[in-house]
Design a protein around this nucleic acid. Structure first.
Lengths: 235, 235
DNA sequence: CAGTGGTCTAGACCACGAA
DNA sequence: TCGTGGTCTAGACCACTGC
C-alpha cells in the first residue's frame, strides 16, 4: 500500500473516530513531522479525503471536517448494488432470484460494447430493508471476462471477488439515474401499485484498460430512493 | 490562472475538438516538452481531466479518451439550477415566478445553519424545454451574504454574479436526490397528474470557508429527469 | 525488458485569511 | 504581516502493460 493511501486511511479513521463537523485538523507542517513524509505526500493524502467529502481545506486558514450528510440518505457513489461495500447497511438481506448464462440483448451489447449474440451472465438480485423489498437489480457480466460465475460467488461481494480472486482491476463506473413509473411486475415486488414512482440507477463498470465488463440496472422503492453526493469545487 | 489549470483547459479543448473515445493522448514526456513544464504539473492537469471523466490513465499503457455519456442524459454535477452553466442546453427558457425576502422556515434554517427568523431571499424559477415545463426550482439565499438581490440579477447566472460581482467564493455543494409523487400544484405546472413521479434534487452550496449560503430545491418532470455521473476509481 | 504512468522527496516561492 | 494552504520544479525510483 502506498504511503499517501495509508496516511489517508489513518486520517479517515482518526477523523470519524474523534472529530466532528468544523473541527480543525493539525496544520500541514505538523502532519509532515507526525507522518515523517514530504509535504506533497501529505497534500496528496488530504486530497483523497477532500475528494471523498470528508474534509475541506481553506488556504490561509486551515483544514476542517466537513461532517456527515443528511440522515436516511445513502451515498450515490457508495455503489451498493453488486454489494461493493457490504458494511454500508443500506439493506439487511439479499437474495438471488435467478442466475443464468444468456445471449446479450441489444441494450446490453451496447452498454458493454459486445458483439452480437455474445454471452453474458445475468444475475437478478432482490434487496430487503426492514423486511420490505427496497431494490431490484439485474446485473449483466461479460462472460469473456468473468467466467464460471455461480450462486455462491454471486452472493458474496461480487466486485471484491473479481478484484481479489480473478485479479482483474475495476475502474471508473458510469452511472445513469432516471425516474419512471413502476410496471405491474415490479410493483408487485415492492407491494406498490403499477404507475407508482421508482428510481432507476444504471451502472456500467469499466476495467482498468477502459473495457466495460458489467452493466447493472437497479430499480428502487421510491420511499427509499434517497441519495446524497458530496461534491468538490471544480476549480 | 494557474499553469496546470491553463494546460487542463487547453487539453479539454483539444480533446473535445479533435479526439474520440479510446483515442490515445501523447505520452507524458511529449506533453512535458510541448507545454514546457515539469512532470508533476502535467500530471496535475491530467488529473483534472480524469476527475471530470474526460480521460483515463492506464499505467504502463497510455492515456485515453473516455468518450461521451449517453444521449439525453445531463451531468448530475453540471448543476443546472441557479444557472451555473448556461451553455448547457438543459432548458431553453427560464422564468422567475416570484422573488421575495422572507423569514426562513425551519427546513431552510437547518439547511443553511441560520438563527431562527433569519432572513433569506426566496426565488422561484420555472424552466422550460420544448415549451414544456421541465423543472420547478425554489432557491433560498442567506441575506447576510447575498444582499440586494433583484429580478435582474436573479435572471442571470446567479452563482456567477456571486463569484464575480460580490467576490465571494463558492465551494463544495452537497447534493441530495430523492423520488416522490407530485402534489396537485406541481402536477398542474408540468401538465401531469397528482401522484405521477418526480425527481427532487436539493443542493446546499457552501462558501470557501465552509458556511452554507444557498439552499435550492428543484423538482423535475420525470420524463426529463435523466442524469449521468462519471466516477473515478476510488483508489 | 522497454515504455509508460505514478510516487515521493526537498525546497523555493506564491496566494489567501485572519488578526 | 504572519501563518497557512497550494503550486511548481528536477530528479530518483517504482509498478504495471504489452511486446
Amino acid at each position: 500500500m502506498l504511503k499517501y493511501q495509508k496516511i489517508a486511511l489513518e486520517m479517515v479513521r482518526h477523523i470519524t473516530g474523534n472529530l466532528q463537523q468544523k473541527d480543525k485538523l493539525p496544520v500541514i507542517e505538523t502532519l509532515i513531522s507526525h507522518y515523517n513524509v514530504s509535504k506533497s505526500t501529505i497534500i496528496k493524502a488530504l486530497k483523497v479525503l477532500e475528494d471523498k467529502g470528508i474534509i475541506y481545506m481553506v488556504r490561509g486558514s486551515g483544514i476542517f471536517v466537513r461532517g456527515e450528510g443528511r440522515k436516511g440518505y445513502y451515498n450515490l457513489l457508495g455503489v451498493n448494488e453488486l454489494q461493493e461495500d457490504a458494511n454500508d447497511n443500506r439493506y439487511d438481506l439479499l437474495n438471488i432470484m435467478e442466475i443464468e448464462l444468456i445471449c446479450a440483448l441489444p441494450e446490453v451489447t451496447t452498454a458493454l460494447g459486445l458483439e452480437k449474440n455474445a454471452k453474458v451472465y445475468s444475475v437478478k438480485y432482490v434487496y430487503y430493508l426492514d423486511k420490505q423489498v427496497t431494490c431490484l437489480e439485474q446485473a449483466f457480466l461479460n462472460q469473456k471476462i468473468i467466467s464460471n460465475l455461480d450462486e455462491e460467488i454471486a452472493l458474496k461481494p461480487i466486485l471484491k471477488y473479481i478484484k481479489d480472486v480473478l485479479a482483474i482491476k475495476m475502474r471508473f463506473p458510469d452511472i445513469y439515474v432516471n425516474v419512471d413509473k413502476l410496471n405491474a411486475e415490479e410493483a408487485s415486488f415492492f407491494g406498490l401499485n403499477a404507475g407508482d414512482p421508482m428510481l432507476c440507477k444504471e451502472i456500467i463498470y469499466h476495467l482498468a484498460n477502459g473495457q466495460p465488463c458489467c452493466y447493472s440496472r437497479a430499480v428502487f422503492h421510491y420511499k427509499q430512493a434517497k441519495f446524497f453526493l458530496k461534491v468538490n469545487s471544480p476549480n
